[in-house]
Computed example of a mutant assay.
Amino acid sequence: MIEQTFIHISDTHLTPSGSQPSFNQEIDPYLKLQLVFDDIKKMDNKPSYAVITGDLIHEGQASDYVNFKKIIARQEEELQMPIFVILGNHDRTEAFYNGYLSETVKEKYYYKQQINGVDNYFLDTTFENLEQGYLDQQQLAWLSKSLQTSPETPALIFIHHPVFGSSLENMKFSILQNGSELIRACQKGNVKGIFSGHIHFSTTYLTGTILNFVSDSTAYHIDCRKHHQHFVSDIIGYNIISMSTEAEISVENRYLYCGQKIVKNLDVGSTGFVESSIFDTNSVNISH
């Protein structure tokens, strides 16, 4: 029996004012996101909430996040559900705090929400202006402590950069660089799933007993099957997640458009994990 359904969207890469769509997209990413929302409205069983796992605006300014906030507020009203967001490496923390939250800027944006008896953790894996993800010790300690306070409660983790799995062998250089630390923290509680994006293709794998689901993008797909050359094409994808009363998770991939034309080639050097010493700092540049 399904207890709840929610929507997982990722990597919208909305275009900043006055810029061209990122990665040579030929379809307006704002239109792509609107088509996703329009598709959600067709569902008979309305979802409880939606999450957008980062890369909201492609390197935008505060005014772009003001506009994004208006879009989200309108969709929350029309869909009658909350929409939660986290940050990705192409987001700009200071602009997000000033434009989306209208709050004093902090180094990291992370929080927890309990919905229908499930603890949802929204984490910030951005590190300065790097492509790679990294979870700082403050967030890991906060997560561990919170999980330990309710070890039997089902929990879900939302991050931008995915934890390593065998299907990400060609993407080690780009994903969460200290994913093993996150998995150790998850073992403090009853984490059922980790949901992420960033790599622009969909994949699912287990880390121990934890389901890892990596979402494709609403903006563009990246074919990463070749080690040292990746190929970009337009796409519109999102996911419908169902969770049973026994906290069993199922995922439906929804694709509204799959472009066949390659719009950009990406040359890739080393595909291994990066040197960990680049994260050895206690000072994070919040302005990226």
Rank of each mutant, 00 (worst) to 15 (best):
Q4A: 03
Q4L: 15
E26G: 10
L31R: 05
K32Y: 04
Q34Y: 09
D39T: 09
K41Y: 07
M43C: 06
N45V: 06
N45A: 04
P47V: 06
S48V: 06
V51D: 05
T53C: 06
L56W: 05
I57Y: 13
I57G: 09
G60Q: 10
S63F: 15
F68N: 08
R74V: 02
E77Y: 11
E78Q: 12
L87M: 09
G88P: 01
G88S: 02
D91N: 07
E94Q: 15
F96G: 09
N98H: 10
G99I: 06
K108M: 04
Y110C: 09
Y121R: 05
E128I: 08
P154A: 09
A155N: 10
L156Y: 15
L156D: 08
L168E: 04
N170R: 06
K172T: 00
I175C: 06
G179H: 09
I183A: 11
C186W: 11
N190Y: 11
V191I: 13
V191W: 07
I194T: 04
I194W: 08
I199C: 00
F201M: 06
F201G: 05
S202H: 12
T207V: 06
T209M: 01
F213A: 12
S215Y: 07
Y220H: 15
C224F: 02
R225I: 01
H230W: 11
S233F: 00
D234S: 01
G237W: 01
S242Y: 08
M243R: 13
I249A: 12
S250L: 00
L256N: 03
Q260E: 15
K264N: 11
L266K: 12
D267I: 11
S270T: 02
S276I: 00
D280L: 08
T281Q: 10
S283Y: 14
S287T: 08
